[in-house]
Design a binder for these strands. Structure first.
Length: 103
DNA sequence: CTGTTGACTCCGG
DNA sequence: ACCGGAGCCAACA
């Protein structure tokens, strides 16, 4: 089965453990691509919605960004994961940021 | 096939 | 700190 661009995104994203987050940039880098926008497109299409923790993906600045179910929902989910949100932004992003392995 | 848009990021003013 | 523009790749009309 040939993996599409977004399949790779999901593959890496699924590796993110609970209580951790990642950025669109980091995700793009993990798949050897600079297309951070395309990654966002993949999430929006989110054909694997329940399989992929799209709510764990935030912006590089720590801002929440967008979400198919609404950013407020995303924030609520992240808080449930144990991530602190402040002013609509992730607090201590660096602390929660998940480091992708080689591939 | 071309052109626009987008769940982004970086740099300049 | 805030706003605008350019760059990046894939999906969609």
């Amino acid at each position: 089965m040939k993996k599409s661009f977004y399949d790779r995104c999901y593959s890496s994203l699924k590796k993110v453990p609970k209580g951790h987050v990642t950025t669109y940039k980091a995700l793009a880098e993990s798949i050897h691509s600079k297309a951070v926008r395309a990654v966002g497109t993949a999430m929006k299409r989110n054909k694997n919605a329940p399989k992929v923790p799209c709510h764990r993906v935030v912006r590089s600045d720590g801002t929440i960004g967008e979400y198919a179910f609404g950013k407020l929902k995303k924030i609520a989910l992240l808080k449930k994961e144990g991530i602190e949100i402040e002013g609509g932004k992730v607090k201590n992003l660096k602390k929660y940021l998940y480091k992708f392995k080689s591939r």
